[in-house]
Nucleic acid binder design. Sequence first.
RNA 1: GGCGCUAUGGUGCAACGGUUAGCACGCGGCCCUUUCAAGGCCGAAAUACGGGUUCGAUUCCCGUUAGCGCUACCA
Length: 411
Amino acid sequence: DVYKRQELYRAAAKKCLANGNAFLCYCPPEKYAGGDHAEEGAEAGQVRRVVRCTCRDGQPSPPGTKPAIRFKVPTSGKTTFLDLVFGETEFSNEDIEDFMLLRSGQDNEEFGQPMYQLSVVVDDIDMRITHVIRGADHISNTPKQVLLYRALDAKPPIFAHLPLILGPDRKRLSKRHGATSVSMYRDEGFLHEAFQNFLALLGWAPGGDVEFMRTADLLEKFKLEGVSRTNGVFDKAKLEWFNTQYLQKLPIENLVPQVQQELRRSGLWKEEWSAGAGLQWFTRTVDLLRPRVRLLPDFSAWSRAFFSDEFTIDPAAEAKFWKDPKVPDLLAKLAEALAALPEWNHDACDHALRALAEAEAVKAGLLINATRVAIVGQAVAPPLFDTMVVLGRERVVKRLRAASPAANASA
RNA sequence: GGCGCUAUGGUGCAACGGUUAGCACGCGGCCCUUUCAAGGCCGAAAUACGGGUUCGAUUCCCGUUAGCGCUACCA
C-alpha cells in the first residue's frame, strides 16, 4: 500500500516531466544547500536566492549521476488562488523557485522519495479535497501547489490560512513554551470544551462581545471568513479562566464523568460511586467542590479529603486557624455535640456549632475555621456546613476527635 | 538579502468613514463573606510613526518602522 502511494507520486512527477512542467535536475544536492549563502560570489548578508536551476532547459546528463525532478516554474506571469481568510492572493512566478518534486534515487532506484509539495498535492487530488485549511506558514507554499494542480490537470482547492499561535515571547509556539500538543493540555486537566472555546477565540470572534460559547454555539457561529489575519499570543491565564468558567457552568452530569476519570487516574475512585446513592453522593460532592477548582487534578489533590480518609493537615492552615489555645477543647466539645445530634443536615450542624460557640463565648468564625482545618485539612474548602453534610457524621466526628489532640500539640 | 503577510490597552477580540474607541483575561480598589473562589461595582491601560484621500479617518491609499512566515534532494 505504501508502495502504491510511492508509485502515485512518481507517476505524477513523470506526468509533469512529460507535459513540460518539470525537468530532470543533475545538480549535486550540496549546490543549493546552505540556505542564504548558496550563491557563489555572494557577499554575506547580501545574497539573492537562486530560483532558476540551470538544468531546466535540458543539460547533458553528467555520467554517473542520478537526476532528481524539479518543477519548471514559469518565468513570467502570476499565480493566484482564493484564500477564504486572506482573500484573493497572488504571487509573481519570477519569485517562485524551481522547487524539487522527487529526490534522486539511491542504489538501484530510478528516483527517490517525493518532496512535501508533491505528496500533499497528489494526496489531496487523490482524496478529492475541496478545502485546504492550514497554518499561515503555508501561504508561500500555496502558489507552488497551485502550479502543481494545474500541471496535473486538477482544479486547485479553496484555501484558508489560519494565523499562527505565538508564545508570550511572540515566537512560534514551541517546546520551550511548555505544552504544545492538545493532549498535553488534557493531561494538565483542562476541560476539552474550555480549551476549544479558548482556542476558537484566538484569531476569531463572532462579531460581538460574547465569549462563552459551547461546542454547539461555536459550530453555529464559526465562519472562516471571520478569521483574523494577525498571529495571536497564547494567553494561558485566559485559558485557565475559561476552565474555571466551564468547571462552574457545565451541566453537572457533563462534568461528573470527567471527574470520575480524574479520580481513576489518581487511584481515589471507588466503584460504589458509579450508580444509585453512591452516584448521587458523588454528584453532589463534585457540585459542591467545583466553584473552587481550577483544573481537573485539583479534585484529586486539593479535594482529597472528600474522597479519602488518608489526607494530611496543611501546616499553614494549622498555623493560621489553630493558634488559639482554646481550639483543641472546642473541637473535642464540638465532636460530642455533633455526635449527639438527632439529625444530620446543614441547619442542624449550623445550630450546634453556633450554640457551642456562644456557650464557650468565642466567635463562631473561630470555631468554623478551626473545624474546617480539622475535617478537610486545609484552610480553603467549600462552605463548612455543606462540607459536613457531604462528609457525613461519622467521618466528621472522627476527624474532629483525631484533630483535638493534634491541635493541642499545635497550640 | 528576496518575496509575502500583519499592525487597536500587557494579552485575545469589537467598532468594517462619523462612538465619550466597546468587551473579556490579567492588574489595582471596594462590596459580599465562614476560609478561598465565584459574583457585583469602580479604576489604570490602546488605535506603531509619517504622509495623503475625505466635510470627517482606528477604518481607504502610499511610505517608514516593527513582528511573523517562506526562501532545503525538511514537512
